[in-house]
Design a protein around this nucleic acid. Structure first.
Lengths: 212, 212, 212, 212
DNA sequence: TATGAATGAGTGTTCATTCAT
DNA sequence: GATGAATGAACACTCATTCAT
């Protein structure tokens, strides 16, 4: 029985739990975007929400949990947008292009969130049990599937692994984004999409597939 | 009986300032490699060097400064090794392959240092004024030069920018490294080198340049 | 589409104040038994009762007050059971044995409550003004009375004070209980009862009182 | 690399590590005696020592560790005093009496420390690996040994276990102490010693051992 | 000069208690 | 009356940095 002596004095705006949670998540998302996940600090989240630090912990068990929620909500938002826009009747080149374009757009829009998921959550020992893992799988599997299909159908050679191709694509996207983040230069989503798609496609397609 | 203080018996090895600095840098580098830059702690550096914490600050103004020095020295070491091993008479494919192979080897050997530079230093607002920036430029320019030469000589097409190609190469390398760091899987330097080089080369070479 | 707030659908069971208080006390008692008084937390009590935290404070001024009420009610319950089971016509040995047996049974059955009273309430500066003090006195006085009667009737010697004997009995009981609580070993209520009773009886009875 | 902006301003008295540690231990011991281990708080220890909280953690990894050190040092102090004063040639009665007298003196002098060891440390999962466990064993084994010897030599009956007898002795001692601590009454170490020793001895000695 | 004892702002987290609705 | 969102003091613990000796 800890001995709490003084009662709270200041009374703040009352919000519904849904609103408050949404606000905390939204504020944290901004903070994450601005400063990176390493710098998301309880006190600052609380300050920006205009609530006490205790309130944060009413809704989220820990700062990490909050960050994970932010990542999840963001990821689900993204997935909703992506899923509805891929037409499986398209030519492989077009689908690949489309996926790369979307990834570039996403990462560019929320680089800090991407980084948090990539660098922090993926390293977690229980990552594979996390919801974000499933979400991420649903996302990356789209590219994997297209690449695999290309190989299976003989459109692509089979001398480079799907995972390496995927790393070239996503690695390039992230690299571009960081340069952009550091204000070392802007990049055009369309041009970059074309560049990556073309290099991958031309670099992988079967020699006999003569259509140039 | 009065409490006579015994004189200190510990005879600390007396090193010259240069030696001392070198030792601190070396110890910090080990620590960085072992635990990552987030976990490099003043007290541990001092302990392992057998010096006091204060000494660290005598030689380096702050922990950050020390880490930067470590990165710089490491980078210079690397550059020396790389510079001496590229034969400019080689075929472009071979030089490209060689550079990719070296980059993969470096990153794999010192992932924590790579990460520190990539994640912490590059994000610094004054990165462009830092020595490490120049060093990094010297390093990446080697790949840039080869790629540019390929375009200039008509070996490569000119519809994808050199910087994008470079990002595909380094981005892929880093992606692979993270997976490796997270213990999610090993990668073969040779196979990865072949994969990247082939995709880039096949994807970029002029159609008429028939030499496969 | 405007965001119409739906009316709350949860129909809380409407209990009379007496019933509500009884429920809170009962729930707290369970919690106390399960986790120890250090871990009885407002929010958990409220949760398990299906009421809000505020309600707890409507009925009880503080968590401490609630715990005290729990202890009191429990103690009264015990006293009712004990009072009705001692036959004052029994031989002193049997009555003593009976009381020790009951104490052991109680403590074993509700070790957390015992601990709360022993460790927390007894140490309070105003303990002597508390109801629990009176209740405890009524309880211990039963043993005191038997011991005093034994001395007065010449069954026991008079060279050891009643209070010391009582402390040997209760002290032993508590000691046994702690060992048991720490899972360092179980104890048999019957064997322990025999042990304590025999040592006390044989150790105190008049030499000439030959009736064993 | 957390971002610490402001340097410390106030400079305090410099003590040697030995002195500082000794002071912290001594202060903590006082605090423990005054308020019980539950109330030993970092900030208060620091305040009373006239140092900052950080200093405490320079010397002790945690508050718990500090408390354990306090307990250990105290226990060793005690053991030194006890060991040198038992003459194994004495009659069993005298040795038992002597041990009880010492235990009473110790517990009375430092009841909070006793309580900390008894209630907190003993409950620790790794208690059996702790130094304090060894120390405690050395202490309690002295009483165990005397009691066992009494049984083995036929001086005591064998119908009550050594552990129960030990619990009667120590339990009684603690009970007395608490009453004393609560200012509910004083007790004479000598009288209590006589009482306990006599009850145990008379209650346990063989009937035929006629020497009354 | 080098030392290392000391600093102190900062960080996440807990939980009894309050009071506007 | 009852609710429950919000409070805020408290607490353990960290670690880069300083400065008297």
């Amino acid at each position: 029985m800890p001995n709490h002596k003084l009662p709270p004095t200041k009374t703040r705006l009352r919000l519904s739990p849904e609103q408050r949670m949404a606000e905390i998540i939204s504020v944290t998302r901004s903070l994450l975007a601005e400063k990176g996940y390493q710098s998301v600090i309880t006190s600052e989240v609380a300050d920006r929400c205009g609530v006490s630090e205790g309130t944060i912990f009413k809704y989220f068990g820990s700062i990490r949990e909050l960050l994970i929620r932010v990542a999840e909500e963001w990821f689900e938002e993204i997935l909703g947008m992506v899923s509805s826009s891929i037409d499986s009747d398209d030519h492989i080149y077009d689908r690949l292009r489309q996926l790369i374009w979307q990834s570039l757009s996403i990462v560019r829009k929320e680089p800090s969130l991407t980084r948090f998921i990539l660098m922090e959550l993926r390293a977690a020992p229980n990552y594979r049990e996390m919801k974000i893992y499933k979400l991420n799988q649903r996302f990356t599997s789209k590219i994997n599937d297209v690449l695999q299909e290309a190989i299976d159908k003989g459109v692509f050679r089979d001398d480079v692994s799907v995972s390496l191709l995927r790393d070239m694509i996503f690695g390039c996207i992230e690299h571009q984004t960081w340069i952009y983040l550091r204000n070392e230069g802007d990049f055009s989503v369309d041009e970059t999409t074309d560049g990556i798609t073309n290099v991958i496609f031309r670099g992988m397609k079967m020699p006999e597939t003569v259509d140039y």
